[in-house]
């Protein structure tokens, strides 16, 4: 059974279609990178997959269940799109504990799950005695990504995870995502503007343009060139 199945989905704002995808299937364990220019509809698609926007037409199924009708998908889906996903008046510790509680994780479990992230955090997240809202954008992103992966979800959805991060953190995040993919067999759905990062992490690349899928390909050694050729206008 597919992990995510998008069927005939459309979103229109004031007569302007921003997303129009007849079909997109993501199988369990697959790693899909979504690329496209600004306004291509990446985030809108993510929001519809996460039932945060009501599609104008069509449905999204998670393990065969319509996400708009049942909430079961929330148990095995981890996501971070933007700062709106964070409860920003909590400290990172409080936020992680809260997410842990939702998944019935003990304090020890949470600490253990965070262990692989400590490098990524670079000592700037935990024990800072600061609220999330007072962190920089990059550090907020680190909190969001860690919180999304905390529950060992079966599918992890991240919007622009590399944006706002320093080069070291980008590389660490790349290794983290590979670790999650290989060790935990997580399904990954990632959007990025960074072509080289995304092809390194994802085995499948989908190009979105003006809300429509224009290419859907397996990653090979020629993918980067193909992508660069595509985006060179």
């Amino acid at each position: 059974m597919p992990m995510i199945e998008v069927k005939n989905i459309q979103k229109t704002y004031n007569g302007r279609t921003v997303v129009n995808i007849p079909e997109l299937v993501i199988r369990p364990g697959e790693t899909l990178g979504l690329v496209g220019n600004n306004g291509a509809g990446k985030t809108t698609l993510f929001r519809m997959i996460l039932d945060l926007i009501r599609p104008s037409k069509g449905e999204v199924f998670s393990k065969g269940v319509n996400v708009a009708l049942h909430e079961d998908w929330k148990e095995y889906t981890g996501s971070h799109l933007d700062e709106g996903f964070l409860i920003d008046y909590l400290t990172p510790e409080e936020y992680f504990k809260f997410i842990g509680d939702l998944h019935h994780l003990s304090a020890g479990d949470v600490a253990e799950r965070l262990a692989p992230f400590l490098d990524f955090f670079n000592g700037e997240i935990l024990n800072q005695k600061k609220y999330i809202r007072d962190f920089s954008k990059g550090n907020q992103k680190k909190v969001g990504v860690a919180a999304a992966a905390l529950a060992n979800p079966e599918i992890l959805i991240l919007d622009e995870p590399f944006a706002n991060l320093d080069p070291t953190s980008q590389i660490r995040l790349k290794n983290l995502l590979k670790f999650l993919r290989e060790q935990k067999e997580m399904t990954l759905l990632i959007s990025s503007h960074d072509l080289s990062h995304v092809i390194e992490v994802c085995a499948r690349i989908v190009i979105l343009e003006k809300g429509e899928i224009v290419q859907d390909m397996e990653t090979t050694e020629n993918t980067l060139q193909a992508l660069e050729a595509y985006f060179t206008v």
């Binding site: 909430e71 709106g84 996903f85 409860i87």
Partner: peptide
């Protein structure tokens, strides 16, 4: 409630 919508909390 926006930050809770993507979490496993019943609507």
């Amino acid at each position: 409630i926006q930050p809770y919508l993507h979490l496993p909390v019943k609507k």
